[in-house]
């Protein structure tokens, strides 16, 4: 466990130093601050529309960062050979991968937390109420980014960052296209195995509805653990078979 935490800590602090993160954070903050000035707000749903757009900005900004961190980390460590000094020690490859994922997930968590704080602060400043439900939406985004990071890290153990980015985009598309691809009625047998990421999309209930019940939150965490577990096992198997 010490090895996993040591690697994750190193990944976290290495990631947080990257200037691109600050740039994304500032850009997203400015975008959120500008949402209330959009011209086509409908009377009575301003807060809901604000929340929806704020979470969309948070999702996109988090996705950019998650993609950038997850698909480049392992290939660059292998390319620069910094991984040799790690894996020649009593550190298993799965420990290295899990540590890398954990550090990336923590980093994205800080980022999503910061975005959500900006969302709530801007909402409070403009509408005079704390839109705390946005935090639940942000939690869903964070968990989804954890899955996306696990996919990116797993795939990038055997392909280049560019290929991994394309694969990740495809994964996101497939993950959010269950209704389109397998339909509500056709292909029923496939639906049970469909890798849907829709479980993490709680934007509608937190912006237009009454929020998300605790049981749903708990089940969302179970889905997250399942997805991440499977992806990291696949990643460890791929990376374990690779010559460095």
């Amino acid at each position: 466990m010490r090895s996993v935490l040591t690697v994750s800590k190193a990944v976290f602090f290495d990631s947080i130093r990257r200037r691109i993160l600050l740039a994304v954070l500032v850009f997203a903050g400015v975008m959120v601050a500008l949402i209330p000035s959009l011209p086509d707000y409908r009377l009575g749903v301003e807060k809901a529309v604000f929340g929806e757009i704020a979470l969309a900005v948070t999702f996109v900004a988090s996705l950019v960062v998650t993609l950038g961190l997850s698909v480049t980390r392992v290939p660059s460590e292998v390319e620069r050979r910094t991984v040799y000094a790690v894996l020649a020690r009593p550190v298993a490859r799965w420990q290295y991968l899990v540590g890398t994922w954990l550090g990336t997930f923590a980093m994205v968590g800080v980022l999503v937390g910061a975005f959500a704080a900006v969302d709530v602060a801007v909402g409070a400043a403009v509408y005079g109420t704390l839109l705390w439900k946005l935090m639940i939406g942000a939690l869903g985004i964070w968990l989804e980014m954890g899955v996306v990071a696990a996919f990116g890290i797993a795939v990038s153990t055997v392909v280049s960052p560019v290929t991994a980015t394309v694969a990740e985009a495809a994964f996101l598309f497939v993950g959010h296209s269950k209704a389109t691809l397998v339909g509500e009625e056709g292909a029923l047998a496939l639906k049970a195995f469909y890798p849907s990421l829709d479980a993490f999309n709680v934007v509608a209930p937190v912006t237009h509805g009454n929020g998300v019940p605790p049981l749903y939150l708990a089940s969302m965490v179970v889905v997250f653990v399942g997805f991440v577990g499977v992806l990291l096992v696949i990643g460890a198997a791929l990376f374990g078979g690779r010559d460095l």
Partner: peptide, 25 residues
Amino acid sequence: FLPEQPYFPVHLTAMQAMRFYGALT
């Protein structure tokens, strides 16, 4: 193990790198 032409995370100080590898060891 000393790899040929070793590379290390460049944002670390020498002491931080030693702490990192020491913890892994």
